[in-house]
Amino acid sequence: MAVKRARTIPCTDCEDWQEDLSIRGFRVLGCIQDPASPGFCTIVFEEETAQLDGAASNEIAAAVLERPSARMAAPQVEQPIPETIVAALPMLTATQGKAAQAIVNIFETSRVLGDYGQVTVISGDSGHLTYGRTQTTLGSGNLTTLIKQYCVNPGARFGAKLASYIPRLDRKDFSLDADQILHNILRASADDPVMRETQDAFFDQVYWKPALRAASGLGIRTPLGVAVVYDSIIHGSWERMRDRTNGNSGAIGTIGEQKWIAGYVATRKQWMETHTRPDIRATVYRMDAFQRLIDQGFWGLDLPLVVRGLEISADTLSAIPHGCYDGPPAGSRALALESPLARGMDVRLVQVGLSERGVDIKADGVFGQTTAKCIKQFQTSHNLPGTGIADISLIAHLTQ
């Protein structure tokens, strides 16, 4: 049986502690703000089952607790862990966490695993250019942070191309909403495993972990309840809707989690339906989907689930992400219009090359009629035979 441990630490050190504990083989269950010690929180963790024996667990725990921040912390919380802390922790398995994230991925990109290469610009959206697995925006500054994190990785295939845009991203240059070359480079970077892993880490840090902390602080433990919080952290106005729900329905400690979550979903739906912005009104389907899960009693997010017509199951959660290509490498084959249509990373790189040379084309990785037409136009404009076929020589020129 895994032994739960707790430690009171400065809130500023919480993220570093969680990372250290994970590296050393512990599973972090959550952290709760300590009302008696402002600026401190209690982090609860346990060793992974069947991974460490008791002696090894104690030795590693001692090493973690020797961090300098531990010695500066408030009085330490020793076992047994107060039941009030344990009761406040979200109870999610890894699969339940993935299911919660998949629900929001479906809301954001209509894909169970999200769409790592999706580029979106919605008229009237204050976020402006939006990108990635769970969609992060230029307007918030988070897109800039994501691109910077990717570019500093020495293995980033498109790092040099994207780095040239960082000054404009820093300025929140909204003309990037219409920059098709940037859009195509972003789409292509989704084929790079470094970008996909950077996105995973980024979205966990910026959205998922804050959602877990917010749920813990409120006493939300069910996977469905956490999914509702996570959706609001991403979509916005979580704190305002939380406070409005407390006023409309009562505090969660008074009415219980399930009634509170149902009240929150109703409150947020009403806010969406009456919002002045049409793009917000158009997202009321998110609350409708949550209401269906509540009505069916799927608080544990047991698989399989169907959300907005898409299956969330062990198979779909372990599939290859939509629209991502791991090959073939550019120049390994000639590209021409054929049936079935040629798809892959090489097609996408050719499309990016055309885009960088002024051709109006979307880099979707599919060699269809539009791509063949664009190839032919490029060939004729450069005094080449207009075949519409990208041979090895042309591919090398476009992808250099």
Rank of each mutant, 00 (worst) to 15 (best):
W17C: 03
A6Q: 03
K4P: 03
G124K: 00
T95N: 05
L305S: 09
Q96S: 00
E19P: 01
K4Y: 12
Q296I: 03
T84G: 03
I392C: 07
P210T: 13
S22N: 15
T12I: 14
I312A: 12
G323A: 12
G159H: 08
K172C: 09
T316V: 08
G256S: 04
Q135W: 06
L218E: 14
T136F: 03
G114C: 04
A50K: 15
C324D: 08
L303P: 09
E338S: 15
V206K: 14
T84M: 06
G297F: 13
G30M: 05
L143Q: 02
L384F: 05
V347L: 03
Q135N: 06
C31P: 00
S249G: 11
T12V: 14
R268A: 10
H183Y: 02
V229N: 01
T49P: 12
V206N: 04
L354W: 01
V3H: 11
L310D: 07
T380Y: 06
K373P: 00
Q379V: 12
G365V: 05
A396C: 04
C31E: 01
D231W: 10
E83R: 10
I375V: 15
P38C: 08
P80N: 09
R343Y: 09
R242Y: 13
T371M: 06
Y230T: 01
C14V: 00
A342Y: 02
M345N: 13
W299I: 14
Y285V: 10
K376E: 14
P80C: 09
I261E: 02
D200W: 07
D192L: 10
R240W: 07
D16G: 14
V104S: 05
D302Q: 15
A156I: 08
P329F: 06
